[in-house]
Design a protein around this nucleic acid. Sequence first.
DNA 1: TATTGATTTCCTGATT
DNA 2: CAATCAGGAAATCAAT
Length: 273
Amino acid sequence: MVVSGYFSPLWSGCESQPQFWTKFQVWEWLQQVLDMHQMDTSNFPFQNFNVDGHQLCNLSHQDYVCAAGSVGSILFQRVTELKWGGAFSFELRQKISFTLHTPSHSDTWVHNAQQYKKRYLNSDRGLSQDLVWYSNCCKSKIYDPLNNSPGPSPTSIPSEKSTMQQYRCSYVKKHNQRGTHLWEFIRDILLNPERNPGLIKWEDRTEGVFRFLKSEAVAQLWGKKKNNSSMTYEKLSRAMRYYYKREILERVDGRRLVYKFGRNARGWRESEK
DNA sequence: TATTGATTTCCTGATT
DNA sequence: CAATCAGGAAATCAAT
């Protein structure tokens, strides 16, 4: 990858570009992905991944499956996402940098590019946020780094527009809202007994029936997550009742503070863990 | 900027 | 009586 002259060192974040990882970073990443999927890392064949980032990127899907079984598919998918994301970030950074260092652009242009650069550098929220940010950037119609319009574009940079946009959509959909819904929040409390100081309890584990033990405490916790200090069980329960129609929850009548996961609730069964 | 989905807020009335 | 449950209606908020 060739870095242009006006490409500031500040802009090169290698951590999102697996091509440049060391072996150590590869293992760190493996650990991270396994953790993220709540998989047991003690039996994971790390030795099968005794490669640096460049080699990692050149492995085929088949290689991943041979090295790690079914988990390999996930790893392959992840690294592919990163490769695209890294390329995307690289291109975006380069184009903004180009704008900032080309005197022929109007003040407005330079100002906008500076704002974008500032926001980009201040962002520690990860790739998905970068993509949301990018999306807004394009919508503003002031600067569209992938469309070359109305902004400038170094001709040496290949356009990967369709791939990028496709990627952007799928990535944002899959990763931008994880764990933000109430029912997922409740489920996760249930699934993490070590972090659940008697707040909610399974009544029937296999049927997905559970009961609130400390209703107001759960509401407070939910409020904390949503940055809403005035959350109450009264209001939380209204949201829970809306889940009946969507079949995320099923009615359990006659029993106070008792709910049951419905057919549209995922990830609560023991077999799914 | 408008739309939309997911709550949040409020409320009246019924149950436990 | 206090705490919950049931929903309708409207407001809010964030992602798109």
